[in-house]
Design a protein around this nucleic acid. Sequence first.
DNA 1: CACAAAAGAAACGCTTGCGTAACGATCGCC
DNA 2: GGCGATCGTTACGCAAGCGTTTCTTTTGTG
Lengths: 116, 116
Amino acid sequence: MPVELTPSQALGLWHAVSLAQVRVDSRDLTLRQMAILLQIYLVPPPHTVRGLAATLGVTKPVITRALDTMGALGLVDRVRDERDRRNVVIKRTVEGSLYLEKFGDLIINQGRNLPL
Amino acid sequence: MPVELTPSQALGLWHAVSLAQVRVDSRDLTLRQMAILLQIYLVPPPHTVRGLAATLGVTKPVITRALDTMGALGLVDRVRDERDRRNVVIKRTVEGSLYLEKFGDLIINQGRNLPL
DNA sequence: CACAAAAGAAACGCTTGCGTAACGATCGCC
DNA sequence: GGCGATCGTTACGCAAGCGTTTCTTTTGTG
């Protein structure tokens, strides 16, 4: 189910959401961190460092650092894969789900209130 | 003209756009920087450091630094206000317009290609 | 004219992120 | 059992961001 947007709506929506999010939450995630977070929560598991790095087109340390940061914020969790102990499986958290749920609501509301 | 989105569409759109932007452009603007940039380009001028700080709910140095960075990237320009030389007026640039135009297209295309 | 107020920048010490390169742990396979 | 390959992390030197405070320039007002 595609979403059809005009250029003005597209940028206007991004503008309104960015602004609202900045005002409401001092956590200033980079676009990369946001992409990682959404990938983890919207795409079926399992997620690994290597897989995320390939998906995002960035190096592994970038993923490691983002997981450090977002782990400290409680947004994600890391668990060693017992079947192949070289791997780390990235887990979702309750707090992360809540964070994205609120963020989704924000998008919906800002979209609804777009100026005509 | 409001945009009606389901929770899945809202987060899915943000996910797809973030991912595509990360892959296509190594410039990793923070959410704050993006909010500032969009504010400058979507809201009628003039824009000042003080005004942006108030709009974003952040301190003035945050704006100064963001303008430094984005100025170095060619996305914005600063000009002293000749009518009140304490002020600095933030100007749009051709490169900044291009950047946002491409970004808008990206949003539109990702919205159009959202999974059903 | 003097002087407080205002705008923006710069300074300070700190934190976080970067890319590259090196590292330890673990696996698969001969 | 040994050994190259793979996975994630750590180390390194550096760039950029943060909040707070201080400074410089300019304005307006008594």
